[in-house]
Design a protein around this nucleic acid. Structure first.
Lengths: 122, 122
DNA sequence: CCTAACGCGCAACCTTTGGTTGCTTTTAAA
DNA sequence: TTTAAAAGCAACCAAAGGTTGCGCGTTAGG
């Protein structure tokens, strides 16, 4: 859980502007700092910085094409990012269930059910 | 997508330290700034600030109990947050599929299939 | 051809946010 | 009743997201 190894991917995808950039890139197949900034409420330079971050995280690759530099999403890496989002989500989901069950057990027996409780260790 | 209304929830859950705090709170049912800081690589004051953020986002509620202030996760709100994570993930997933299909279509026909292409509008 | 415009990269600067240290206040307990 | 744990308050620091302003290559159009 929160393996602190892949916090890079998370933080890359954690920024709202970067998320919207990925949306646009997916929708249009590719884009440049300029083209993206026209669709977003930030300047070209801000977008350029975000593209650098996304590139370093491996979520997009940029290739020079004449006077412009076109970026496209790395589908495999994005898939990995999505997997991590889902992982955190389902981890929490399962914890919620567990807590509910423990609460019920306490209600019924007056004592926590050690069998159900042990899933910790960090 | 990225409705910019619920960016609050996202950014609350976007921080790695806050994610780990939620993990711990879920695991133990409740916690205080002090108890959490003992399990995390940050100071009590940092934790306190994060708790304030999480509280404002409605993800946790704190109640004064004697000389300590215990926080617990709001399960409903956390469920909403998880739902949003999943939403973004599956949106991207479906876009990836779509792009792959369009690419195949172009390969076959030499022209983009307008039927498949229309899912945009922002 | 050659020049005007476009797109990019670089640098300085500002503000917010995650984090720190240090001190005061509150409250339980010895 | 004094002592010590827990919380709160304030100043400060560094990194991140964002801005403006500039100079430089490339490429279209006249």
């Amino acid at each position: 859980m929160s393996t602190r190894v892949d916090d890079d991917l998370w933080s890359a995808v954690g920024d709202p502007t970067r998320r919207r950039m990925i949306d646009r890139l997916l929708a249009e197949g590719s884009g440049t700092a300029t083209s993206l900034s026209e669709q977003l409420p930030v300047t070209r330079q801000a977008v350029a910085k975000h593209l650098a971050v996304l590139d370093k995280a491996g979520l997009v690759h940029g290739a020079a094409a004449g006077r412009e530099r076109r970026y496209r999403v790395d589908e495999a890496q994005l898939a990995r990012a999505v997997a991590q989002l889902n992982a955190v989500g389902s981890a929490w989901d399962s914890r919620l269930d567990r807590i509910k069950r423990i609460a019920e057990t306490i209600q019924r027996t007056g004592e926590p059910d050690t069998e159900t409780e042990r899933t910790e260790k960090e």
